[in-house]
Amino acid sequence: MKLHLKIWRQRDAQSNGALVDYDLDGIDQHMSFLEMMDTLNGQLILNGDMPVEFDHDCREGICGSCGMMVNGQAHGPVAGLTVCQLHMREFKDGATIYVEPFRAAAFPLKRDLKIDRSAFDRIIQAGGFISASTGSAIEANNLPITHDMAESAFDSAACIGCGACVATCKNSSAALFTSAKVSHLVKLPQGKLEAEKRVIQMVGQMDVEGFGHCSNTEACEVKCPQGISVLNIAMMNWEFNKSSLLG
């Protein structure tokens, strides 16, 4: 297939960026989107140009490294996928494809499609853990957890931290990311002890990082590759309100 690409190129956070046009021929429809980008980069390098920088690693949708806006949508037009799992058969021959980085005030751009998502790490650092040092654990089966609660905690814990929720949010809110971790841990008995402090600190850090308000538009759930539910956000709100009033 033939493609017209319009890719955001920007040297660094200080420079101005712009969409740059590329024509690409000979693309196989079974290629993944990132393999198409590899092909483009191969040509750019041999032409003496700088290849397009983008983050990627596992290429099977679990590491959360990749992420870009494809035709104006986070991870592209297909729901439930990361961009590494998007395949070229989803596009028509001769199509024009726009590629931009995930954008948010809290995700500064590094180069081209590469962004800095360390704000997510700092949110987890603020309390997204259980303080269980190595060696202090009790026998695992002394802590029964109902099947449904374990499954529900897993649903929240499945977040891969890619940032699509923020990129697709009209306010760049990190509510889905933050709430997924708050919910994961508060659903488990071993996570309840630190619940009050955790939610206040994580929400506080989320605000410090410059993420916006949650408007409950639910776009984040729609574009989440793991389908993390927006009800996690409600759970975080409940925990926050409870901790603020009673804590």
Binding site: G212, H213, S215, T217, V222
Partner: peptide, 29 residues
């Protein structure tokens, strides 16, 4: 207040089709 603050954090895209992911009235409160 919220709108003004969101303006500051919100991203602008050169090509934006994010509207497919949510209801128009939820974005235009």
């Amino acid at each position: 207040v919220i709108t003004v603050k969101n303006r500051k954090t919100a991203a602008k895209y050169a090509y934006d089709e994010r509207k497919h992911a949510s209801k128009w009235y939820s974005r235009n409160m």
